[in-house]
Computed example of a mutant assay.
Amino acid sequence: MPRVVVFDAFGGPDVMRLVDEPAVEPAVGEVRVRIEAFAVNPLDQMMRSGTSPTTVPLPHSRLGIEGTGVIDALGPEVTGLKTGDPVILAAVPDASARGSYAEYTTLPASQVVVRPAALGIMEAAAFWVAYSTAYGALLEKARMRPGDHVLITAASGGVGRAAIQVARQIGAVPIAVTRHTAKKDDLLAAGAAAVIATDHTDVVEAARHHTGGTGADIVLDLVAGPGRQHLLKAARPGGTLITAGFLDSRPTPPVPSSTPLTVHAYRSFDHTLDAVVVKRMAAFLNAGVRLGALRPAIAKVFALQDVVEAHRHLEEGLNDGKKIVVTV
C-alpha cells in the first residue's frame, strides 16, 4: 500500500511518521501523481512545528508544497495531459490534506506543469517553489526590466539564489545581501553582480555604492522584520520594495506614508493558483532551463524513510541555503 508522511501533533521532526494509505482516485478535473521526489521547504518545517502563518488541522496532517512525478491517473474532464506525463506540482495550497510527502497525491490538473526535459528528477523536485516565487515577485509584481539594479536579501537561500538567476536571465543586475562574509564567494559564483555582507558592511551605503549613488530599483525582501527599515533607504526614490518572505519572526514596522516607494507584499499563491500566470511562469522558466540560465542547487538527497533526518538537516542549517530533496 502507498506510504504517506503524516503528523498528529506539532513539534520537532520526530512527530512525523510514515503510514500506509490507499491511493485516492482523482475527482473531476483532477490528476493523480506518482511522486518521484519532493523538496523540503521552510514552510513545511513551520507547518510541522505549529508556527505556520496558516491554520494546520490536526490530527493526521500532511506536508509538502513541492514535488515532481508522473501522471498516474486522470479524473473526468481532464484534457491536455495523459498518464505517464512527467510533471511538476505547481501549487499545493492544501498541503495539510494532500501534500507531496507521499508516494501518490491528487490535485487539480491546472496545478501541474509539464516537467522540462532538461531537468533531472532531483532538480525538478527542488525547482518550482523557489523559481516561481522569484519570477512572480520580480516580474509579475515588481515589473523588473533589463538594467534594473535588484537588491536581494537572504540571497544564499533557495528563493534568493533563484532570484539572482531570474534577474540575470532578463539582463537585470542582482546585488546579493547576506549576513555572512564567508558566503560572498559562493554568491558571486551563483551569479550575483555584487555581494553585500552585513556583518561588515552597511547595507544602505553599499547599495548606493553598487548603484552609482542612486539606490536599488527593486528590493526583494525575503526576511522582513525590523531590518526592512534599512532596506527602504537602500532603494531609489520611485523604486519598488517587495516583501516575499518572513524569515525574521519579529514584527515588521509599518512603512511610513512619506516613503517614496511602491511597496508590495507577495505570496506565491498570489499567482500559482492563476492558470494564466502559471502558463507565463512555465514558459519563462522552461526557457531559462533550456538556456542553462536557471538551475537549482541541491545540498543533500534523503530517502522517504529518512524524512525525519531531512528535517533535522534543515533545522540545523546544514543545507547552507541549498535545497534538500527526498526521493520516493
Rank of each mutant, 00 (worst) to 15 (best):
A244V: 12
K322V: 03
S96P: 08
A189Y: 09
D274I: 12
A124H: 00
V92R: 05
V92Q: 04
A297Y: 07
A134D: 01
N286Y: 11
P53W: 12
L18C: 09
P260G: 03
L81S: 07
I35F: 00
Y266W: 06
P146R: 08
A293D: 10
D217T: 10
G239M: 12
A97I: 15
P146N: 10
G160I: 13
L43I: 15
E30H: 15
D185L: 14
P226Q: 14
A224Q: 05
T55V: 12
V33C: 07
P256H: 10
L119W: 00
A283V: 10
A176M: 09
L139G: 02
R179W: 06
L119I: 04
G99A: 09
V40W: 02
V255S: 06
I298V: 14
S268G: 11
V150G: 06
A224M: 13
D217Q: 05
D185R: 15
R280C: 03
V278E: 02
Q45K: 09
A27I: 10
G213M: 14
G64Q: 08
K82C: 02
L119Y: 03
P237N: 13
T211V: 05
T272V: 14
H313I: 11
H271S: 14
V277S: 12
R115P: 01
H313D: 03
L304Q: 08
V15K: 11
A102L: 11
A134K: 01
A95V: 15
V263K: 01
S110C: 08
L318T: 14
R115F: 02
N319R: 13
V15D: 10
L151I: 02
A126D: 01
V19L: 04
H149P: 11
D20H: 12
A154C: 08
P256S: 13
H313Y: 15
A194L: 02
L138Q: 11
H209I: 00
H230W: 04
E77H: 09
G238I: 00
A265L: 13
A190D: 11
Y131L: 03
Y266M: 01
R228A: 01
T106H: 05
G11N: 07
G239N: 14
S96D: 14
A162N: 03
L119K: 00
T252R: 06
V301Q: 14
R179P: 07
G158R: 01
L81Q: 05
G245D: 04
E77P: 01
K300D: 13
H311D: 08
T243L: 05
L247Y: 06
A282H: 11
N286V: 08
A37M: 10
D85N: 05
P237H: 07
T79G: 13
T83L: 05
E30I: 07
R168P: 09
G120E: 03
